[in-house]
Simulated scan of single mutants.
Amino acid sequence: MKTDLQLKHDVEAELEWEPAVTASNIGVEVKDGVVTLAGHLASLREKIAAEQAAQRVGGVRALVVELDVRLPGDDMRTDEDIAHIARSVLNWTAGLSEDAVQVQVEHGHVVLKGAVDSAWQSQAAARAVAQLRGVAGVVNHIEVRHAVAPDKISKDILEAMRRHADREARHIQVTVNEGTVRLSGKVHSFAERAVARGAAWAAPGVRAVVDDLSVE
């Protein structure tokens, strides 16, 4: 088991390794396996990359993100410009029908609304907008309208988990209530946790995922 000092070193090294992140702008603190990232970053894309980098490190029990996005002057855009670009990007995103998602922008923060047939479409829309220059934050309020029986959702998720990581699937419980999936149990790393969440989001009929998994 890693000490907090070893874990701090590994997280800092992973941030240095991640090309989308300026590691010198991020402070890392670790206590009892809980990692806290703090600092000011130049884009939402960099913030997401930093979170993902920390989660890749083995031994991270939980992640606290205290990263602020402060856009440089060259990246500042009007809300009207962001809304126009976001609308165009969503229209060009594969898997999304035209006008399925509505865009609202205030002070660089984008709110996505609308209805799609599956959760992965909702996630694809949020990822596409998060990559845009000038976007300081994304709130995803897109609804999933396709209804699937709870037992089928649970079965599909567990089968997907077994394809990806059979050992972890045995220790994960999946419950479904009105399209909301709750994952509980234990996994050995954030990477395994990400596999479980990915499998849950990809299942047809999933509207939301509640992650109650603990990392040993």
Rank of each mutant, 00 (worst) to 15 (best):
M1R: 08
K2I: 06
Q6P: 04
L7C: 05
H9S: 13
D10K: 02
D10P: 04
E12Y: 00
E14W: 04
L15W: 01
L15S: 00
E18P: 03
E18K: 06
A20M: 11
V28H: 03
E29D: 14
V30N: 03
K31L: 11
D32I: 04
V34P: 01
A38G: 06
A42S: 15
I48H: 13
I48R: 13
E51F: 00
A53I: 07
Q55I: 05
V60T: 02
R61H: 11
R61Q: 14
A62W: 02
A62R: 09
V64F: 02
E66P: 01
D68S: 15
D68W: 02
V69Q: 07
P72Q: 06
P72H: 09
G73P: 05
D74E: 12
E80Y: 05
D81L: 10
A86S: 12
R87W: 00
S88L: 10
S88T: 13
V89R: 12
L90T: 08
W92H: 13
A94K: 13
G95A: 09
L96C: 12
D99F: 07
A100F: 06
Q102N: 13
Q102V: 09
V105D: 02
V105C: 03
V110P: 03
L112C: 11
V116L: 06
A119Y: 09
Q123V: 09
A126Y: 06
A126T: 07
R127T: 10
V129M: 00
V129P: 00
V129F: 01
A130G: 12
V135C: 08
A136S: 14
V139D: 13
H141M: 06
I142E: 03
V144G: 07
A147M: 06
V148R: 06
A149V: 08
A149E: 12
P150E: 03
K152L: 15
K152V: 15
A160R: 10
R163A: 15
D166Y: 05
R167P: 06
R167Q: 12
E168C: 06
T180R: 12
V181H: 03
R182E: 15
L183H: 08
S184V: 00
G185C: 07
V187C: 07
V187G: 03
R193A: 11
R193C: 03
A194L: 07
A194S: 13
A194W: 01
R197S: 07
G198H: 05
W201Y: 11
P204R: 07
P204D: 10
P204C: 08
P204V: 04
G205T: 10
G205N: 02
G205V: 09
V206I: 10
V206C: 04
R207M: 11
D212H: 15
S214A: 13
